[in-house]
C-alpha cells in the first residue's frame, strides 16, 4: 500500500502567537458579515419550487372546467398508506358531460397518512390527480388534515390538457364512430 508522508513543519513564531491566524479568521468573518444574508425570510419569501416537485396531491379540472376524475379508484387502490378514500358517483344524464358517466361523489385524501410518493399521479389514467407545489400543511385537528373534494379542487385548480380525451370521444360518437 502506498502512502504519502505529510510533512509537518514546526510552527513558526508568528503562528505560535496565534495572532496572524486570529486576524485572518476575523477577516473571514467580517467578509461574511457584509455579504448578503443566506437566510430566506420564510413565510414572506418562499423558496423557488423546481419543476417536477411532489407536494400535496390535488385534483385538477381541465381548461373547460370539467372535473377530470372519473372515480375509477385506481389511485385509492395503489395508494401505499391508504390515504385516499373515494365515494364513486354518477354524472346526471342531463349534464353536458353525461357521456363521461362517472365522477367522484366524495374524494378524501388524509394528509396525515399521505407519504407524497406520487403513485396516485402516476397511476391516474385521466391525469386528474397531481402532486403540485404546496409543501406546508398544518391544522389544529385530525379532521382538518383530511382534504375533501372541495378543498382538493381549490388546491389543484386548472391544468392545461393535451388530449381532451372525452371531447374527442363525444365528437367521434356524434360522427357515427362509437368505438373510438
Amino acid at each position: 500500500m502506498s502512502f504519502k508522508t505529510v510533512e509537518r513543519r514546526p510552527l513558526s513564531l508568528a503562528e505560535r502567537t496565534y495572532v496572524p491566524q486570529i486576524l485572518s479568521g476575523m477577516k473571514t468573518t467580517f467578509k461574511k458579515m457584509v455579504k448578503p444574508k443566506e437566510t430566506l425570510n420564510y413565510p414572506e419569501a418562499r423558496p423557488p419550487i423546481p419543476p417536477g416537485y411532489r407536494g400535496v396531491p390535488t385534483l385538477v379540472k381541465d381548461p373547460n372546467g370539467r372535473e377530470k376524475c372519473v372515480s375509477c379508484q385506481l389511485c385509492e387502490f395503489v395508494c401505499p398508506p391508504k390515504a385516499i378514500r373515494i365515494t364513486p358517483g354518477e354524472i346526471p344524464p342531463d349534464a353536458e358531460t353525461a357521456h363521461v358517466e362517472k365522477a367522484p361523489e366524495e374524494f378524501e385524501i388524509d394528509m396525515l397518512r399521505c407519504i407524497y410518493c406520487g403513485l396516485c399521479q402516476e397511476v391516474c389514467p385521466e391525469e386528474a390527480i397531481w402532486l403540485q407545489n404546496v409543501f406546508s400543511v398544518s391544522g389544529y385537528t385530525r379532521e382538518e388534515m383530511v382534504n375533501d373534494k372541495k378543498r382538493l379542487y381549490e388546491l389543484g385548480g386548472t391544468l392545461p390538457d393535451d388530449h381532451y380525451k372525452w371531447d374527442k370521444k363525444k365528437a367521434a360518437e356524434e360522427a357515427g364512430n362509437p368505438h373510438h
Binding site: 468573518t29 461574511k32 458579515m33 455579504k35 444574508k37 443566506e38 437566510t39 425570510n41
Partner: peptide, 10 residues
Amino acid sequence: KVSAWIQGRP
C-alpha cells in the same frame, strides 16, 4: 445580531 450577521442570518 452580530452573531447572526457573521453566520449569514438576518
